[in-house]
Write a protein that binds this DNA or RNA. Structure first.
Length: 302
DNA sequence: GTGGCAATAT
DNA sequence: CATATTGCCA
């Protein structure tokens, strides 16, 4: 049984404050509804062929998630990266009920949550479903986690597998580059390598010795102040001093389209540089082609 | 049904 | 290229 687990688990859960306090990630994936709210078809200048929605769904249910930030008060962090609906392929038009989720972009912060969850659950209980639930990131699906988990495990394995032999050259330190250089696995890890991986993760079963669970809260939440929904002219600012690790798509084109909040029209003049906070980070997610990308944004926590 | 993994697709 | 998706299996 998982009595022992329940022990800390329950405790941990017990520690969980109310849903309000919960939600380390200030927000999660942008829900279609939310996106819609932002999108409010104002921008037609974007080459976005609106897909014909067969029917007008009466959005009876919203995200159905209690924590779903019904109000986007704290969401946006300027460019930090927000959730982005890319090109707006579908965002531009009415949300067809069967909205398909945009590609989830695993940002380091999001991955951190993932790792935290796994670390706290223990390899033992770290299964997609549990992880997903613990992350409480609405919008995250089991498949999302499962897929990522797969890669994550490979990464850990690789890490453990090697460790001896620095290949003579790399100074005994295992740098991600070195790892991949070993060619242990073709699938390299970018995100993983950048994330702080808890020291343990290698022994699934521990007779009965429980693993010490440092109560590292799954992240320290960071409260943002209610920011107006980025009105026109209200440039985004506020870039957390956080560094961004991006690997990303190649911004081959000099055209960046901010995936997140594109406040309708740039009210010409008000603020010349409407949004486009810092393309440097966003560019990575730049869907060269207008692919919709859903990304969580960094919670300034690390 | 859920989870893990390889292959494959986008 | 990073994810998602699928197939197959435990």
């Amino acid at each position: 049984m998982r009595e022992e687990d329940s022990n800390w688990f329950a405790k941990w859960e017990d520690e969980l404050p109310s849903p309000e306090e919960l939600m380390p990630l200030s927000q999660s994936l942008i829900t279609p509804d939310l996106a819609l709210a932002f999108d409010i078809r104002n921008h037609h200048y974007q080459s976005t062929p609106p897909p014909p929605p067969p029917q007008l769904p009466q959005s009876t249910d919203l995200s159905s998630q209690p924590n779903s930030s019904a109000e986007f008060d704290s969401t946006e962090l300027g460019g930090g990266g927000g959730v982005g609906l890319g090109g707006g392929g579908l965002g531009s038009d009415e949300p067809a009920r069967t909205l398909k989720r945009p590609r989830l972009v695993w940002t380091p912060q999001l991955h951190k949550r993932f790792v935290d969850a796994v670390a706290h659950l223990g390899i033992k209980n770290a299964v997609p479903k549990t992880i997903m639930q613990l992350m409480s990131v609405d919008g995250l699906t089991r498949e999302n986690v499962a897929s990522h988990l797969q890669k994550y495990r490979l990464y850990l394995k690789r890490m453990q597998g090697m460790s001896n032999n620095g290949s003579g050259g790399v100074g005994g330190n295992n740098s991600p580059a070195a790892l991949s250089a070993l060619g242990v696995d073709p699938v390299t890890d970018h995100l993983f390598a950048s994330s702080p991986v808890p020291a343990h993760f290698l022994h699934p079963s521990r007779t009965n010795s429980d693993h010490f669970m440092p109560f590292v809260p799954v992240v320290s939440l960071q409260h943002h102040h209610p920011m107006p929904v980025v009105g026109p002219g209200q440039g985004l600012h506020h870039l957390p001093q956080q560094q961004f690790r991006h690997y990303g798509t190649s911004p081959s084109n000099g055209q960046f389209e901010h995936p997140f909040i594109r406040q309708s029209h740039p009210v010409h003049g008000s603020n010349g540089s409407v949004i486009s906070p810092h393309v440097e980070n966003l560019d990575t997610a730049t869907p060269t082609n207008g692919r919709k990308v859903l990304t969580l944004f960094p919670t300034g926590d690390d």
